[in-house]
Design a protein around this nucleic acid. Structure first.
Length: 842
RNA sequence: GGACGUAUAGCUCAGCUGGUUAGAGCGCACGCUUCACACGCGUGAGGUCGCAGGUUCGAGUCCUGCUACGUCCACCA
């Protein structure tokens, strides 16, 4: 036991011991019912972790540590989500390169010394992927170091990365099985498209942003020369107009249904049609349908069977040649090649010149769909994409998935409604293909016909044993490399899967599905999915979908949703807002236990303010634990025997209640409550109980032995109760006098702790109340707490105080008489004080 | 427009199935070098529990309505 206990350096010291001893290693001989398996969220490896990660990962760790102490073999893996767009974007900026699949692979390529964002060096796909690996490997090391310092009891022998061979194999295998069962399919369809990333994006990755815009009132000509006026925020799509639409009940436009009108500038004849979705209240009540301005256009186009006239290309620019029957040499010539904004500006000028624009554009702000990671509004383009059925087009599947959500135990429970909300509102299947590079490739090829066109309905599939494959470098069975991209040969599917298509398989990846059936059977379905509530619609739902389709079960029994970290202005902390606090300096300044204490004090699912004050409190608690332990252990250990004194028995009885409550709280996934109860008890233990009994414990005989036993017993239990939240301080103290790790010690047992026979648990409260009154008297007299009490009159009869009178005299420094008022049960004693003791120089 | 959540002391939050004068910590004030702890100890002042009704012997707690804030979804001409 150290002379001067300290938290300095406990993180490094104990992390090293835990790794060396394998304290958190998963016992893979354990049977399924002895296992507690956690589907750890793989953090996105792009940049750095922030306090939000520290917060939510601590919550998971609390549960993991509790379950481990309950005797479970805890399967607590760690994954890194390193594939996908965030990594690509970071690699581009970090190294100053961009992926250009037409470039040949150069193994000796080195990125420029100083990245120039304006002149990114084009790089082959393979070279680009290698740089992605290089950068994510560095980041993963930094993440691991931080998580270890935080004290996560992860088994670092079970790690994965979403781009590694195992993840790619799992993702490809799961996809091939989806394909074989008809759950995955490819189709050509209008798709939301990010023009900067040049990829399709899924419904789950959309967000609305309020953007400035303007209503432009534009006249279409009827055959008789009359004008029909529409209002549009996207006049540049006029050449893509395929119809006008109004509500079938709208009397103003009923005469026009079935007739045609002519578009201004372009002179294209389009029909006037009726559809329920047209809102008579909006604008002029009649709208132009373009291919495609928004998702409503897609609905109208599909349901009214209109033609396609695309004008915006995949780069967000107007196509060089307009769709039929727009005249390429007419006004369109001025739009070709322009970006959407420039095209709008020009077309407004043209409309104004021709007189088809009525009045000035009316400025508005309106919500516009963005890719959540994107910078420019999404366009809609038609492209061939892969989908997985998720109930968006199939009521039976949707119902089944809602039912899965009801099987799942949600913590907190109200989060289920977010899931049901989302599943109920799906309007299409899950788009999983991305036109990107650093991801899991679709494991298939297409034969090329004599004209060199792919035969999409006869894809060439690899045997599962070959997985993972990269179709751009691997060759399908029965072909040779020199047949690639040749008529009569084959071509690779060029796309990669979205990152959610891989991370939706995190239980299968971590559990080594099919690669290690023995392990998988011991951990799947898992016990816990911890995650943030903003990705219920993505990660949680997609994982349920994959597991439902592949295994016919939930992927886990419980989901624990953590809240957000709010900055002091109560705004969500996020990278894009620039209000992120990075955690390392906090861990260094306050210590990991202190930061964990802050996190552990928040109930799951509750948004929590970032509060360094709570970290100070946590640090104080951890230091107090060291000091109080040192003191309690400073008394000689008493021989085996019973705890006999009423005050000591009361302490253990109260502690047994705390154990019961903490256990109940942990079982209900509410570690914050367990910590709060433990902490409250601990301060009473320090401030009252220790003060009351230390005089006796310094003495000799059975009464002293009783106190010494109670102190050690209570300390032993308290250390175990604190171990999940304060793993470093608890382990530090445990090491002074116990064998092994506190994190492998059994969770305390209330029944074994509770003293035998009748216990008056109230004596401790009564003694503490009197002590408090005496302290108040001394405090009011502004004198030292060492000032002796010359006369103490206690309200009530002697027997009420007899069990602890000696302890009380000692703790309250009663050097004079004690009298009993004999009646009344109010605990307001009369205190007469003597002379304050002489001040002692320190 | 729909759904969900939150609202308790200056701040951050407890308050479980309704039950005596509503709790903690921080901050603040006043004191104390007390033999584990100045990274300390003690004491105190702070609240008509968002608003309005209702149920009940009794409501911070249950019901209804409203308000404010937050989030998700829908709308997007």
């Amino acid at each position: 036991m150290p002379e001067k206990p300290s938290l300095d350096g406990v993180e490094e010291r104990w992390d090293a011991v835990w790794q060396e001893q394998g304290t958190y290693r998963f016992d893979r001989t354990a049977a399924r019912d002895g296992v507690y398996a956690i589907d750890t969220p793989p953090p996105t490896v792009s940049g750095s972790l922030h306090v939000g990660h520290v917060f939510s990962y601590t919550h998971t760790d609390l549960v993991a540590r509790y379950q481990r102490m309950r005797g479970k073999a805890v399967f607590y893996p760690m994954g890194w989500d390193d594939n996908g767009l965030p990594t690509e974007r970071r690699v581009q900026n970090y190294y100053g390169v961009r992926c250009d699949p037409s470039q040949p692979y150069d193994p000796s390529f080195e990125p420029p010394e100083k990245p120039d964002p304006k002149a990114q060096v084009p790089l082959s796909r393979q070279g680009f992927v290698e740089l992605c690996h290089r950068l994510t490997a560095e980041d993963e090391k930094a993440f691991e170091a931080l998580f270890k310092r935080l004290g996560l009891s992860v088994d670092w022998e079970h790690t994965y990365a979403t781009i590694d061979d195992r993840s790619r194999r799992v993702a490809q295998r799961a996809f091939l099985r989806n394909l074989a069962r008809g759950e995955a399919y490819a189709t050509d369809a209008p798709t939301l498209w990010d023009v900067d990333f040049r990829t399709a994006v899924a419904q789950a990755e959309l967000e609305d942003r309020e953007m400035p815009g303007a209503y432009h009132r534009v006249g279409f000509s009827r055959p008789d020369g009359e004008k029909v006026f529409i209002e549009t925020t996207r006049p540049e799509l006029l050449p893509a107009c395929v119809a006008l639409v109004a509500h079938p009940d709208d009397e103003r436009y009923q005469p026009l249904f079935g007739t045609t009108v002519t578009t201004p500038l372009f002179g294209v004849e389009v029909p006037v049609v009726a559809h329920e979705l047209a809102d008579p209240e909006k604008g002029s009540g009649i709208a132009m349908i373009c291919t495609f301005g928004d998702t409503t256009d897609v609905t109208w186009w599909r349901e009214l069977q209109l033609p396609v006239r695309s004008v915006v290309g995949r780069d967000g620019r107007f196509l060089p040649v307009p769709p039929e029957p727009v005249d390429p040499d007419g006004p369109y010539a001025e739009l070709a090649g322009k970006g959407v904004k420039q095209a709008q500006k020009r077309i407004v000028e043209l409309l104004a010149e021709s007189g088809d624009l009525v009045g000035e554009p009316r400025a508005i702000t309106h919500p516009v769909k963005f890719f959540e990671k994107g910078d420019r509004p999404l366009e809609i383009v038609t492209s061939r994409q892969w989908y997985v059925r998720n109930g968006g087009r199939d009521a039976d599947l949707r119902d089944a998935l809602v039912e899965r959500g009801r099987e799942l135990a949600w913590q907190p429970g109200f989060m289920r409604s977010r899931y049901e909300n989302w599943v109920g509102g799906l309007n299409g299947d899950w788009l999983i293909s991305r036109q990107r590079f650093f991801g899991v490739p679709f494991p298939l090829w297409y034969p090329l016909d004599a004209a060199g066109e792919p035969v999409y309905d006869r894809p060439l599939l690899p045997d599962e044993a070959r997985l993972p494959v990269d179709p751009t470098s691997d060759v399908p069975d029965g072909y040779t490399e020199d047949q690639r991209d040749r008529p009569g040969g084959f071509t690779a599917d060029p796309d990669v899967m979205d990152t959610w298509a891989t991370s939706s398989l995190s239980p299968q990846i971590a559990g080594q599905w099919e690669d290690d059936p023995d392990l998988f059977a011991r951990v799947f379905p898992m016990d816990l999915r911890p995650q943030a509530h903003d990705i219920i619609r993505t990660w949680l739902f997609s994982t349920v979908v994959r597991s439902h389709l592949e295994h016919g079960s939930l992927p886990w029994t419980h989901a624990m949703l953590s809240g957000w970290i709010l900055d002091p202005d109560r705004k969500k902390m996020s990278k894009s807002k620039g209000n992120v606090v990075t955690p390392m300096h906090l861990l260094e300044q306050y210590g990991s236990d202190a930061v964990r204490y802050w996190a552990a004090s928040a109930r799951p699912g509750t948004d929590t303010a970032f509060d360094e004050g709570q970290m100070k409190v946590g640090r104080r608690l951890a230091v107090k634990l060291l000091n109080a332990s040192k003191f309690a252990l400073g008394f000689p250990e008493a021989p085996e025997g019973p705890v006999t004194e009423p005050l000591d028995r009361a302490l253990l009885a109260q502690l047994a209640d705390v154990v019961d409550e903490a256990t109940r709280a942990f079982e209900a996934y509410d570690p914050a409550r367990a910590l709060e109860r433990t902490e409250t008890f601990f301060w009473t233990f320090c401030d009252d109980y220790i003060e009351l009994v230390k005089g006796r414990a310094y003495g000799e005989g059975p009464a002293a032995d009783s106190a010494r036993r109670a102190l050690r017993t209570a300390l032993d239990v308290l250390l175990r109760l604190f171990a999940p939240a304060l793993p470093f301080a608890a382990e530090e103290v445990w090491s002074w006098w116990r064998e092994g790790s506190v994190h492998r010690a059994p969770w305390p047992d209330a029944a074994a702790l509770r003293p035998e026979g009748d216990v008056d648990a109230g004596v401790l409260d009564r003694a503490a109340a009197v002590l408090s009154e005496v302290r108040k008297a001394k405090s009011s007299a502004k004198t030292s707490q060492r000032t002796p009490v010359l006369r103490l009159v206690l309200q009530g009869a002697e027997p009420a105080y007899a069990p602890f009178l000696e302890d009380l005299r000692n703790a309250a420094v009663v050097e004079g008489s004690v009298e009993y008022a004999g009646d009344g049960d109010e605990l307001v004693p009369v205190v007469e004080l003597g002379e304050a003791p002489a001040k002692v120089a320190r």
